[in-house]
Design a binder for these strands. Structure first.
Lengths: 199, 199
DNA sequence: CCGCTTGTTGACACGCCGCCAATAGGCCGG
DNA sequence: CCGGCCTATTGGCGGCGTGTCAACAAGCGG
């Protein structure tokens, strides 16, 4: 009987790629980009290091895939927003956002702040896409169908407020969910009713 | 006559340290943390690579110094806020913030988003300090002398909104300064009058 | 049971980083 | 003016992380 836990085994390319990606998501989520080496990923995946380059090319491309996975959020139930007056809808979208971000808080909240590598062009584009998606969700939730570029930018700013406030709740633990909810609904109503007129 | 542009020259330790730090600030400001090697810094400073380790220890410590420099902002003129009613003071602090961030926008705005290395404990602490300082400025500007931890956290969240909104103006160029000013004053007034009661 | 496709490996070359003994710049006393 | 000493500065060594590529073998088809 051999001690070898991993004899050489052939997998389907998709399966192998998925397995490596899962390990990478976990490791990059725990530590940062610079703190994780491809050797670590290879070891924990029980795979030769060269295989990572074979499937993902470079380390940065692997990290890019990881970011995309972390920022991918079930955009379901967005249409199931209760059609009420503006305060009701604002309350609903804020609650929905807090639910989502508290579930996979470790990954989404960490990735949206570029846990370890901002400044890279591709990574920034991926984060931009995620912020855009969240901003679109906010706009449609408050009943704005046709948005000007300025309004879209303001919605992006609001997403920035939402993430920083959520961080005070989930990571620093100094705000309660109720406090975060009140802050986000009040500011959202203010922005929609008082500021969006400039766009 | 020799082609050598840099014969070996002795400098005062402080002067040499300052010179290397200046080059590092410029390079880390342009590209990220991972994209700049200590060899690059040494070459552009006309210095042997080992000297960087001699003065700053490790590359991360050098980057930490760079972050501190970028986040250091003249906290002057904060006491010179016109003592008026709340809307006046809110208007003043927002205008002051926009002035400061637009002056050295390239450095401060880039550093506050951890251009290249978030997740590191020391770097995060440096950014936290800067956010704390900005939050304190906001709180004192709106006339709050004794603040609870929750109110401080909300002020930190507001700083997050301010930075993300400023980024839409200065980096993405899709908002005007007037729009940013209106958004930030309106939301600040809302937070102070409607949300701070929960703390 | 054999051969062929191709998933997988191991090693090579290169660049970056931290470290340290050796070197020389330039002030200072004679 | 000059020799000696302090120390700022250098260059190279060892180790590690990454990308590449030819060679290997797992497992299916004949």
């Amino acid at each position: 009987m051999s001690i070898e836990v991993g004899q050489r085994r052939r997998f389907s390319p998709d399966a192998r790629r998925e397995q490596i990606l899962a390990v990478a998501v976990r490791l990059f989520g725990e530590r940062g980009y610079a703190e994780v080496s491809t050797t670590d990923v290879a070891r924990e995946a029980g795979v030769a290091r060269g295989l990572i380059n074979h499937y993902f090319g470079t380390k940065k491309e692997l990290y890019l895939e990881v970011i995309r996975v972390m920022l991918t959020v079930p955009p379901v139930a967005l249409a199931s927003l209760p059609p009420g007056d503006l305060p009701t809808r604002a309350d609903a979208i804020v609650g929905w956002f807090l639910d989502v971000v508290s579930r996979h808080s470790r990954s989404w909240l960490a990735a949206i702040t570029a846990g370890g590598m901002a400044g890279d062009a591709e990574v920034d584009r991926a984060i931009d896409s995620a912020v855009d998606a969240a901003a679109d969700a906010v706009l449609t939730a408050v009943g704005i169908t046709t948005s000007t570029p300025a309004m879209h930018a303001m919605a992006r700013s609001y997403v920035g407020l939402a993430t920083s406030t959520a961080r005070e709740w989930l990571q620093r633990g100094v705000l309660t969910r109720a406090q975060v909810h009140r802050l986000l609904t009040a500011t959202l109503l203010t922005m929609v009713t008082q500021v969006f007129g400039d766009a």
